[in-house]
Design a protein around this nucleic acid. Structure first.
Lengths: 212, 212
DNA sequence: TAGATTGTTAATCGATTAACAATC
DNA sequence: TAGATTGTTAATCGATTAACAATC
């Protein structure tokens, strides 16, 4: 129903916005104070129309003949993807992948602030990993509520994934970034973004083979 | 031209295959020796037709009224995504993300065997990270040629990405799994799979906001 | 003014879904 | 045999691209 009022923004569009941001940041540093969709198209091997549609979706406005103001556009896109204000998140599953993500500083550039990790393994609890506290799973709900956290990052192995997802939902999280190689079941009010490394690897393998 | 003979397999299809594999492995363990596309559809919230099309693309064959033989299908899909034989890869960029990927044991399940890492930082060279050797960049070409390696994993920061990609191409790599947040320029004979964490995060942020 | 560029409507393309015949 | 399921052709849907009017 709300779909009739505001049609959901196409998924491919959302995914391209961060690429525009990255190019824009480069151009801003270089002192380019106006950019056109033709510029983007050349740089990224896209069609200018597509870029224009994408930017329009994000609420950007340009001037015919001139293009878009670099800083203004950057600001608009940053706001669109929520990178203007860091959003807090908790991470569940402090294994190899979880530890990596906790330590990856690049995320702050993307507006992500991982506040704490949670793990079922008692040995890991009440320690820190890359300066982030690790707590027991039974502390999750309270922590999420008290800190108003909306996003959960799921880096649990295949077996524990569903249980961990249930805990995140119960704690009141709104969206889950799921790195586990499993489709988790959640109420439809919760949004799940599956980050599927296996899928990427499969694409690579098939495409390389196709070229032989 | 080869596209006329063998139309490229749709990207979404390739990406779904690993999910089928994961479900199939569970079912195999449970002793289910026959599976139908309806089973998959229920488990994964997909339409049965779509599953059938996907499986057909991967070369699987079923029997009307009965379905697919679990083990046979698993074998077919494994072969399709190349997980039957481990494919060797090198990693370039032994920073935070690179170190994480080197240490992530889950990849061997996906047929990936990272043989060695390469880094421009001399301090890191000739050490090991998670038991994998780290070499200087000028050793890359020789290593790739001698070991017949086809796949390169790029975990270099924004600035170094293009240069590292050039080195991989020069070394004779066929496909690049690019984790850097940059679109790299390569000859069209090289396939690049961009693993875009920023895109995933953007989708999550926008979708959570849409629901407010 | 002339021409580059935006913004939008219409046409195309590719993937999903529906419909249905074939089959065990 | 009857009915569940596969495999395939046709219809639909959504995203990309083309065409073009508006504008600085």
């Amino acid at each position: 129903m709300s779909k009739l009022l505001k049609p959901a923004i196409p998924l491919p569009t959302i995914k391209r916005i961060p690429i525009y941001v990255s190019v824009l940041e480069k151009w801003k540093q270089e002192g380019k104070d106006t950019v056109s969709t033709t510029d983007f198209a050349e740089q990224l091997s896209l069609k200018p129309v597509q870029v224009r549609k994408d930017l329009a979706c994000a609420g950007a406005e340009g001037k015919p003949r001139i293009g878009y103001n670099t800083e203004e556009l950057l600001e608009t896109l940053h706001r669109f993807v929520g990178w203007n204000n860091l959003s807090d998140a908790v991470l569940v599953g402090a294994g190899a992948l979880g530890t990596a993500i906790l330590g990856y500083k690049g995320f702050t550039r993307f507006g992500l602030n991982i506040r704490a990790a949670f793990d079922a393994d008692e040995q890991k609890c009440n320690t820190t990993i890359h300066d982030k506290p690790v707590y027991a799973m039974d502390k999750l709900k309270q922590y999420v509520r008290q800190n108003g956290i909306m996003m959960g990052i799921l880096t649990v192995s295949e077996n524990g994934a569903q249980q961990a997802a249930d805990a995140l939902v119960d704690a009141g999280i709104q969206g889950i970034w799921n790195f586990s190689p499993v489709k988790i079941q959640v109420p439809e009010t919760i949004f799940v973004q599956r980050e599927d490394l296996a899928a990427g690897l499969a694409v690579l393998a098939v495409r390389i083979r196709e070229r032989q």
